[in-house]
Nucleic acid binder design. Structure first.
Length: 566
RNA sequence: CGGGACGUGGCGCAGCUUGGUAGCGCACCUGCUUUGGGAGCAGGGGGUCGCGGGUUCAAAUCCCGCCGUCCCGACCA
């Protein structure tokens, strides 16, 4: 290790929040260049490369073939799919004024190639992957390596003749991902996900639970149901509504605006109240209605009405004749305001605003007193039951570490990726796309594996398997022994590092070894020679094994196999 | 893009309110002692106080503008 570039730090970086951010900097794995731009050190690179090695093995195992595409692309290809000009897209011109983009993903490029190379059903199926740089002008990079503007991604793309073929390719990737994330040693969930800007007909995300995560998964205890909250659904228990009056009844609610004030005034549970939220879409005002205990989920609503913003109070007064706090759907002209109600409103009767300041209506019934489009627009609440009967849902913050998309013909159609089938008929290729972020896998491992002393790596992706701490000079007897041990362990197939840095005190070496977090630490000092024992410490548990010198390699190898489950 | 905070040797921070010779801890260099959990003593090097304007006899400090970084939100394959 002497002479190795391994810059550790004592203090947490001042601007770090996430544990993986603090520890990846302190353990000398990464260094920041600018917002969302990180350099990976030799030590950090070892971790990334181990993740990538697992990825390559498992991708190769399902017959995917590695390629490497440029990071810079002609703009026209992106224009063909309508994805030129996205806010996150870095754009530039070459010296000839030709418009270029830096790739945020590679659907366009791989499909452009497929369109030129695939001719016949005999050429299908294909799965091509690469591990390569992506650039995205994130509005807000954050949390160290978790959300960055430039990162390496494993992205693969499948090309099939039909939907059944896509299903096979999708399942093959799903199998590979299971093996990859299991081998990486992290806790992960496979969840239903939104197709987002990728488009297509179906998708799953691979999520590593962590407080630093930016996404939230709704999940039943046994994992029977698991979905991104962006599309998660649940069973909301109905309150005791009682009999509905024959028609809505107006009552005075002076000064009442918020739901909790209405709860206090009426004595009714929030679930018997209806919350009215006004937004403005490209096509005009929209009244979104959910029950009082729920929140409108912006993304779900956007899937129904498109991009939208919150309405200004003066706009609301114009449309409803009342201020926010007294709004409701009854009497609203559907020609002026589009009304979208959550399916929970289908049962029961509700208290809503009367569109008259200081008054509400009770006994409001959907389809009797007002009409609305009914669509799922609410966020699920923890404790609500899963729709598949697998029990109450928990809401878990997660890091997205991978995703798989059924793209269908979203890219092959505009880019002309077609083939001739057995009957000589031209058909559009059916595609899938599949991503993994190796650095995110590494950061998720840190989030999930650390203690007060530093990182506790899973055996699959630790920078080294064994960390030998030499106490003493390397020209001492123990120095010679440590060097021999390093050679011997390496010959046994263990990735081993020897800390033979001169001039450091033992305590410093121990502290830095703990910070780095390799699974096994071996201490070689003057206590070791001439008769042993050799101290072997397990990072995860802290347990210390004192092993005799004459069987040291075998014992260490056995301990390693036990840890690695091999 | 909205809200907030911060920018002072490599790192972590104080100094700013009330303008007056830039400081502390760690790290670094030299020497001696020390050496199984971030050593001790002594000596030493290193900072246009983010950048640009302004006020003032005098600006790290007050004012204006800009840039950068982080956090919350919006956004996010």
């Amino acid at each position: 290790m002497r002479g190795r570039f391994w810059p550790t730090v004592r203090d947490d970086p001042a601007d770090a929040e996430a544990i993986s951010h603090k520890l990846s900097v302190r353990a000398g794995l990464v260094r920041q260049l600018a917002a969302g731009l990180y350099t990976v050190t030799p030590m950090g690179l070892r971790v990334i490369q181990r993740v990538e090695a697992i990825v390559r093995e498992e991708m190769d195992a399902i017959g995917a073939q590695e390629v490497l595409m440029p990071v810079m692309h002609p703009a026209e290809i992106w224009e063909a799919t309508g994805r030129y000009g996205l806010a996150e897209q870095f754009r530039l011109e070459d010296r000839g004024g030709r418009r270029m983009v830096l790739g945020m993903t590679h659907e366009e490029i791989i499909t452009w190639h497929a369109a030129r190379e695939i001719r016949s059903y005999r050429d299908l199926p294909q799965s091509w992957y690469q591990i390569q740089t992506k650039l995205r002008d994130e509005p807000r990079p954050k949390s160290g390596m978790l959300r960055v503007r430039e990162f390496t991604m494993k992205d693969s793309y499948s090309f099939d003749a039909d939907e059944a073929g896509l299903e096979r390719s999708y399942e093959a990737h799903s199998r590979a991902y299971t093996r990859i994330f299991d081998r990486a040693g992290i806790t992960w969930y496979r969840v239903e996900s939104d197709v987002g800007m990728m488009g297509g007909s179906g998708a799953h995300e691979y999520m590593a639970p962590s407080p630093a995560g930016e996404d939230v998964v709704a999940r039943s205890a046994d994992g029977g149901y698991a979905a991104n909250v962006e599309l998660a659904v649940s069973v909301a228990a109905d309150p005791a509504f009682g009999d509905a009056p024959d028609a809505p009844e107006e009552f005075a609610t002076p000064g009442v605006g918020a739901i909790d004030e209405l709860v206090e005034l009426t004595g009714l549970p929030p679930a018997a109240l209806a919350k009215s939220v006004v937004v403005v879409s490209d096509d005009g005002p929209v009244l979104a209605i959910v029950r009082g205990e729920h929140q409108v989920h912006e993304k779900k609503l956007a899937r129904i009405i498109g991009p939208h913003r919150a309405a200004h109070p003066e706009e609301i007064r114009g449309w409803f004749g009342a201020d926010p706090g007294s709004l409701g759907p009854v009497g609203v002209d559907p020609g002026t305001v589009r009304i979208v109600a959550d399916p929970t409103l289908r049962t029961g009767h509700y208290v809503t605003g009367a569109n008259r300041d200081g008054f509400h209506l009770r006994g409001v019934v959907l389809d009797r007193d007002f009409t609305a489009e009914v669509a799922d627009i609410r966020t699920v609440l923890p404790g609500e039951d899963a729709v598949d009967g697998s029990g109450p849902l928990d809401l878990v913050p997660v890091i997205e570490i991978g995703n798989i998309f059924k793209l269908g013909t979203k890219y092959s159609e505009p880019l002309g990726a077609r083939y001739l089938d057995e009957d000589g008929q031209e058909q559009v290729i059916i595609m899938g796309s599949y991503g993994i972020g190796p650095a995110r896998v590494a950061m998720a491992a840190i989030e999930q594996g650390h203690d007060d002393d530093g990182i506790v790596w899973p055996t699959g992706i630790a920078p080294f398997d064994v960390h030998i701490v030499l106490i003493g000079d390397d020209d001492s007897p123990q120095g010679a022994y440590a060097a021999d041990l390093w050679q011997s362990l390496s010959d046994h197939g263990l990735e081993t590092v020897l800390d033979d840095r001169p001039g450091l005190r033992p305590g410093e070496k121990f502290v830095e070894a703990d910070l780095l977090g390799c699974p096994i630490r071996v201490t070689v000092g003057k206590r070791t020679l001439p008769d042993g024992p050799l101290e072997v410490r397990i990072r995860r548990t802290g347990e210390v094994h004192e092993v005799p010198l004459d069987s040291a390699e075998d014992r260490i190898l056995a301990l390693w196999r036990g840890l690695a489950g091999a």
